[in-house]
Amino acid sequence: MTFNTVQEARNWASSFLEQHDREPRVGELLLRYLLGVSQSQWLAMGRDVLDQDVANTFATWIHDHAVTGKPVEHFTNEVDFFDDTFYVDERVLIPRPETEELVLAVLNEVNGGEVIVDVGTGSGIIALSLKGRLKDATVIGTDLSEDALAVARSNGERLQRDVLWTSGDFLKPVLDEGATPDIIVSNPPYIPHAERDSLSETVSLHDPAEALFAEMNGLAAYDTIVKQVMQLDVRPKLIAFEIGYDQGESVPALIQSYDSAADVRVIQDINGKDRIVLWN
């Protein structure tokens, strides 16, 4: 594919992506990344001559995205979350903006100096975002996937934030060590397997299935974590979950089936959908 200018590449990508029922703006995101330019620079360079190596890579990426749904973040290996840029790849879930709201909900509840456990840490975005804003907190990230923990460790090194990464099934490493966390936070898998076919290919074919889907109509991970919480010698002062938009009743009911006196609140996200459960 030959493009003489940035504008020609933009126009071709937009048309090609629309023909394949993909979001045309992906072309802008990928070309801006390859050119390494800011938004203001991007707006001013439509007539600039495009380097042919960049053009070839761009055309390959656009074709790959159009045909397979490969997400932008798997080309760039970057995702912005709060004010930080994290490395991501096919080993971890690509974080969604709603998860920033989960982190904010936790930040609104803390006083400083707490022991915080991020259960199912994945790329480490929750644990590292909390550590970056709570310098005196002790933050632990757990995950059953060694591949995910490798990504989390890499992000911790890139951001120079001291988080303890430990392998195990949800809270099991904490239980095994006899630790007493003050706060537990988790964005566990919560999509029912029956909904797999309704998801975008960008999600269903490229995010790791173990980070997306759960048994018990999407409640299995919550059930396991709640059972583990009940085994702790000292109950944390806060457990914070991200939930599916339709789990604003089922997750609190599950919690209260184990702890009838639980103080459970449901917080809606910026789109007005149930998204966060806080359990005190």
Rank of each mutant, 00 (worst) to 15 (best):
D176L: 10
V106D: 01
E101T: 14
A220D: 09
E18L: 14
G132T: 07
G120F: 10
L159F: 14
D176I: 02
A105D: 06
D80K: 14
A127E: 09
G124V: 02
P188R: 03
T142A: 11
D51K: 08
L104H: 10
S154W: 08
T224N: 03
W42Q: 09
D223Y: 07
A194D: 15
L212Y: 11
V49D: 03
M45Y: 00
D147Y: 04
L238G: 00
S38W: 06
Q19D: 11
D48E: 15
F58T: 07
H65M: 01
S167I: 09
H193S: 13
E23V: 11
V226L: 13
V251A: 12
R265M: 10
E157N: 14
L171G: 05
D169M: 05
G178A: 11
Q52G: 00
L278K: 12
S250Y: 06
L35F: 02
G36Q: 07
D169Y: 05
L35D: 11
M216S: 15
I276L: 08
W165S: 06
H193E: 12
G27S: 04
N56G: 12
Q52W: 06
N111L: 09
R10Q: 15
F82S: 03
V88N: 09
G27N: 09
T202H: 12
A240C: 03
Y87R: 05
V72Q: 01
G46I: 00
D233A: 15
F3A: 04
V92W: 14
H193R: 11
S15A: 13
K273A: 11
L159P: 14
D80R: 15
Q228D: 14
I255H: 09
L30P: 14
E18C: 05
L171E: 08
Q19L: 12
Q256K: 15
E8L: 08
A13K: 02
V163M: 09
D259V: 10
L130N: 03
A253D: 15
E195H: 13
E249Q: 14
V6R: 11
P188E: 05
I270G: 06
F58K: 11
R196C: 00
A211M: 10
L232K: 03
L93W: 03
A150I: 02
L35M: 14
A13C: 06
V115H: 11
Y222K: 03
E114T: 05
V226C: 07
I276K: 02
I94K: 07
R96L: 10
L128Q: 00
P95Y: 05
D223L: 05
A194F: 01
Q52R: 12
V106L: 05
E146F: 05
R265C: 02
S260H: 13
